[in-house]
Computed example of a mutant assay.
Amino acid sequence: MNFDFADRVERVEPSATLAISSLATELESEGVDVVDLSVGEPDFPTPEVIVEAATEAMEAGHTGYAPSQGVRDLREAIAADLARRDLDYAADEIIVTPGAKQALFETFQTLVDDGNEVVLLDPAWVSYEAMAKLAGGSLSRVDLSASAFQLEPALDDLAETVSDDTELLVVNSPSNPSGAVFSDAALEGVRDLAVDHDVTVIADEIYDRITYGVEPTSLATLDGMRERTVTINGFSKAFSMTGWRLGYLAAPEELIGQAGKVQSHSVSSATHFVQHAGITALRECDDAVNQMTQAFRERRDLLTDLFADRGVEVPVGDGAFYVMVPTGDDDARWCEDALSEAHVATVPGSAFGTPGYARLSYAAGEERLREGVNRLADGGFLSL
């Protein structure tokens, strides 16, 4: 049988991150020692208190369907947690989702129609492009690579891109893949453009707890932005809960009502007992998050020093757990050869809209980071 695939599926490619990870796993199954620096997954176990809370929730019978919008106690805990960053959301302005990726997907599906313009800041997380295309949107992109991945120096370029025809602008700070934390001046520039052109903004703040010496500003706290911002966050990164699939979106109640339709007719709800574990994560795990963040900071500093010792300068981000390493023109070939020859897994920058770089994750132990850089250096991959 010849399937007649929908245009929306044909418009997108598989995730480059997961594709590289799959190849690395295949090599490992053959007995090859791969230093996997490709996946944005903390290497720390989920804090035990969260695991215990999930077990207790299952034993208490929270194994059936949950309310589609999310357990109210969790939504209230999220609202209280958002208030720590001066974000004023009520529980009814929050949808709990199975992962922050689902929250993003629902937002794109709710706001983007065929032909609507979506503006991305490159390098941009790979799934933004796919989600925009699945919703039928058209993409415009602003390159931040010339400014060490910071937005403020590129505000004029952004101003030339955003117009009255722009439906949606996506801002990810701290950034995956660059680790950049955008300045208040940069975010105020976004605010001015969004207000002037009546643009909705997605503020993807999934890495907001993983920062080093800076406090990231939330877009929705700026004058004029609360009513036009969808704040996205989740539990995967900060609480090392990637496999638990728990995230949320916070937005004005009118948008919540529409996005809730997408949730109810797709995934129904986030897993019931996982939501109860999320309450514990927010209320009891600040110390664990701080310890993990300190370890990430030490790894970032180690990794940048290791590259500097080999004559390679990489822009140092103040958040998340990634660096962008220059590769030369053919970043895809560089990453393929680095995996097949040096057995180091990375992700090509072209997957994020920024050719000439590879993303490395330092969510790995210090010894593996040393080994990875040594292999790249010994294989000639740092001699550009």
Score class of each variant (00 low, 15 high):
G136P: 07
V49N: 00
V96T: 10
L111I: 01
M1C: 02
L306R: 01
T161F: 12
L169I: 02
V51M: 15
A238E: 00
T229P: 02
A180N: 15
A60Q: 07
G260D: 01
G115N: 05
L384Y: 03
E152A: 14
E336K: 00
Q102T: 07
N172W: 14
Q263K: 03
P67V: 00
L27Y: 01
D92R: 05
G70W: 02
G356K: 04
A250F: 09
T217C: 05
T55C: 10
T293E: 10
L155D: 11
M58S: 03
D208S: 12
L139N: 13
V373Y: 15
E367V: 06
N176G: 08
P123Q: 04
D378K: 07
K133L: 11
E30V: 07
T280L: 14
D164W: 03
G179R: 12
L255N: 00
V71N: 00
M324W: 10
A91H: 06
L82V: 11
M292Q: 09
I94V: 07
A80Q: 04
E188R: 06
S38P: 08
A220L: 05
F3N: 05
A79S: 08
H197S: 10
G353C: 03
E129M: 08
T161Y: 13
R297Q: 04
G317E: 10
E56I: 05
E188K: 05
I206Y: 04
G372W: 04
L151N: 07
